[in-house]
Amino acid sequence: MAVLLRTLWSNRTARAGVIIVGLFLLAISVGGALMPYSATDMDFLNLLTPPAWTHPFGTDSFGRDVLTRVLLGGRVSLAISVTGVSLAAIIGIPAGLAAAWYGNPIDQLLMRCADLLFAFPSFVLALFLMVVLGFGVTNVILAIALVYVPIFARLARNLALTVREEAYVQAARLMGQSTARILGREILPNIMAPIMVQASISIAFGVIIEAGLSFLGLGVQPPTPSLGVIMADGREYFNQGPWVLTLAGLFISFGLLGLNLLGDGLRDLTDPKLREKTTS
C-alpha cells in the first residue's frame, strides 16, 4: 500500500487524483459528523435559503442543510457504485480469464454475449433492468454491474491472452499446477494494473449512472439521500433555489474528477509506451 502510494505520488496526474479522492473520501466519511445538522433535520424558518456561512450549500425546500445531505448522499452514491463495479469485476474477470484460457467455444460464446451487451447504450441497459427488477438501491447496484460486466470480461480476456504465452505461465503449466492456481497466482497479478485503471474510471461512471437513474426517479428512492435523489429534489424547485442541484452536482464532479485523474495517472504509470514519453 505504501509502495503503491509512493508510485502514485511520482506522477503529477495521479498525485492530483490521490489528493482529490482523499479529500472526497475524508469529506464523506467524517464530514457528516462534523456538521452541526443531521440530514433529516428540518428547519421551517429557513426554507430554501441561499448558501451562507451557516449553510455553505444553502438549505432545501424542507429547510434541510444541503451540505450535510450531500456529504451523506456522496457516501450512499459511492457505496452503490463501488458495490456495483466490484460485482461486475467479480463476475467479469473470471469470465474473461476462462474465455482466454479455454479458448473456443467458451471464448466465442462469452465474447458474443459481451458484444450484445455492448450494443445497448449503457444507460438504456440500466433503465431496462430497472423496469424489470423495479426501483431501489439493490437494483441500481445490479444495473451498474450489468453495464460493467462485459467491459471487465473483455479487458481481462484480452490481457490474459497476451500473458498466457509468457514463459512463467508456461512453466507453471508444465509443472502441473492447477488451472485455478495458474489463473489466480500467475495471470491475475500480472494483469491487475490495467484492471485497476478500468475500475477507477468505472466507479466514476457508476456514480453518474446511479445519479442519472435516481435523478429520473427510476433509481434510489427518497428518503434515502443519494446524490441523484438530492439533485432530483433540487430539480423540483430549480427556479427558486438553483444552488441545491448545482452544488450537489459540483460535489459529484469534484469526486469524479479525482477518480478520473487517478485512472489517468495509473495508466501513465503502467503503460510502458507512455512512461517512456514522460521521462523524455
Binding site: 442519472g212 464532479s253 469524479l256
Partner: peptide, 9 residues
C-alpha cells in the same frame, strides 16, 4: 467528470 444531466442545468 461532469454528469451530463447536471451540466444541462
Amino acid at each position: 467528470s461532469m454528469p451530463d444531466f447536471w451540466l444541462s442545468y
